[in-house]
């Protein structure tokens, strides 16, 4: 009886968590592309105006970023100005929650068929590398190790802390600006 009452609340909590994480990740993608040269190098290979989406099927939370040139991303929130070029779609909210709560690595989620790629797979692979780089920066090492296939050996603590601080500051600023707007 109690479980039946708790279930909708748990589902709602998961939904809110996934939505919040998408908002943080979208803003963090924009931020990391402004501070990290490796991410910029990865993004430069994408066409200018390239739209990338991560979403929960069938019509759940989503994040959309655009490559605006020079390796920089712009976060569009959950609405795209035109059809997206590559979409990574979680088959279910529960699968998105597993990945975004770092219980399942992104690479394992792909291997487990938790999500689908719609669009050019090579761009999706590139965006996954960018996401991995982002997670390595903004998450404590112990958690990042649960999120990425392999924690980058060459990422030293000072670089990580400085970059993470810059990213979080930019994310927080973006949140405040969005709230004011």
């Amino acid at each position: 009886m109690l479980a039946k009452r708790i279930q909708p609340m748990a589902s709602q909590a998961r939904r809110l968590y996934v939505e919040l994480m998408f908002q943080v990740m979208g803003r963090a993608l924009q931020a990391v592309s402004e501070v990290d040269s490796e991410v910029q190098a990865e993004a430069k290979a994408l066409p200018k105006g390239f739209l990338f989406e991560m979403m929960v099927m069938p019509d759940g939370s989503k994040l959309i970023v655009e490559h605006v040139g020079e390796g920089r991303f712009h976060y569009h929130g959950d609405s795209a100005p035109r059809p997206v070029d590559v979409s990574i779609r979680f088959k279910h909210l529960a699968h998105a929650f597993l990945v975004l709560s770092f219980q399942e690595k992104t690479s394992v989620a792909f291997a487990n068929d938790r999500m689908l790629v719609d669009g050019d797979v090579s761009y999706a692979v590139r965006m996954t590398r960018v996401l991995n780089r982002l997670e390595s920066f903004i998450l404590p090492k112990i958690i990042a190790k649960r999120a990425v296939k392999e924690y980058p050996e060459n990422l030293q603590l000072p670089e990580k802390l400085i970059s993470a601080a810059q990213i979080y500051l930019k994310v927080a600023t973006h949140f405040v600006q969005s709230a004011r707007a």
Binding site: S107, F110, A111, V117, V121, S122, Y123, A124, V125, R126, T128, V148, K149, E150
Partner: peptide
């Protein structure tokens, strides 16, 4: 090779 889809499933990064 780095952008090939199958690299996602390689056990080592």
């Amino acid at each position: 090779a780095l952008d090939d889809g199958s690299i996602m499933f390689n056990p080592k990064e």
